[in-house]
Design a protein around this nucleic acid. Structure first.
Lengths: 132, 132
DNA sequence: TGCGGTGTATTAAGACTATAAGACACTGAT
DNA sequence: ATCAGTGTCTTATAGTCTTAATACACCGCA
């Protein structure tokens, strides 16, 4: 049940599934939504819920392990490494979303949208939160 | 020289080149930056400036022609169709950027960023303009 | 010792993406 | 007619992405 809320695939984006998964795991870890030591949803579980091949999920996990973000616990699953949070200071979470924001700015410019129009369209999409 | 400012490829995004080109042509047309009747940069010209295979550019053009956005003029090149602007009301340019904004919102949520943090990061990236 | 749960390796197939080099039909201007 | 400029077709190669079915080694627990 957890994976349903943790991960979401956009099939039409053109971005490979395994890369979408990688980015989302990374985001969740850096946001603290996946705490250090937490076990990740199993390969088969994610594959089932997202209707995706288990090997595709496994590929994402393998690359994340190579990057040192998570570690494999034999017979149990994947766990968020202790060094994962340390890899990126909490303050720099903003840096992760920067490329995406730059993309927005470029698109807005191409479309001839004003700053106000963009902000007006984005604001209601951003949820206000109390936790964290 | 024009294509340099009109098009820009992000090799690391995972999105196919021909799809990046399609989206940007679409944006430029809907923004009026490529007026109806305007000739698009030639396949070979774009291919040269972006260091991309001509067939890749041709593929983007072909699909755009299939979508009715541009038309082929034998021996001359591709031209923005008259029906192109009509396909999307000017007011709905905002709709084009919506999926991207939703992506931003999702990412911000995953990262645990507040609304203010996102807006503060985005605002300086958006150029203020007088035309339009 | 089983059983069900981990991630992974293997092999195969198909679709998609991109590149390369060459050729073609067409147009406009010389 | 010639030439340079259009987009496109063809053939071939290479790499990536995804799926499928099967099997393996490992762990925790009964």
């Amino acid at each position: 049940m957890a994976a349903t809320f943790l991960f979401q695939i956009h099939p039409t984006s053109g971005v490979p599934i395994y890369r979408q998964l990688m980015e989302q795991v990374q985001s969740h870890v850096h946001a603290g939504r996946l705490p250090v030591g937490e076990m990740l949803p199993s390969v088969r579980q994610i594959a089932e819920e997202l209707q995706v091949n288990p090997m595709t999920v496994s590929k994402a996990y393998s690359l994340l392990e190579r990057d040192g973000l998570i570690e494999r616990v034999r017979g149990q699953g994947m766990r968020v490494k202790a060094a994962a949070r340390a890899m990126l200071p909490v303050k720099d979470r903003r840096q992760i979303i920067l490329p995406l924001l730059e993309q927005v700015a470029a698109k807005a410019f191409q479309l001839g949208l004003t700053r106000e129009q963009v902000l007006a369209a984005l604001t209601p999409l951003l949820k206000e939160r109390g936790d964290d």
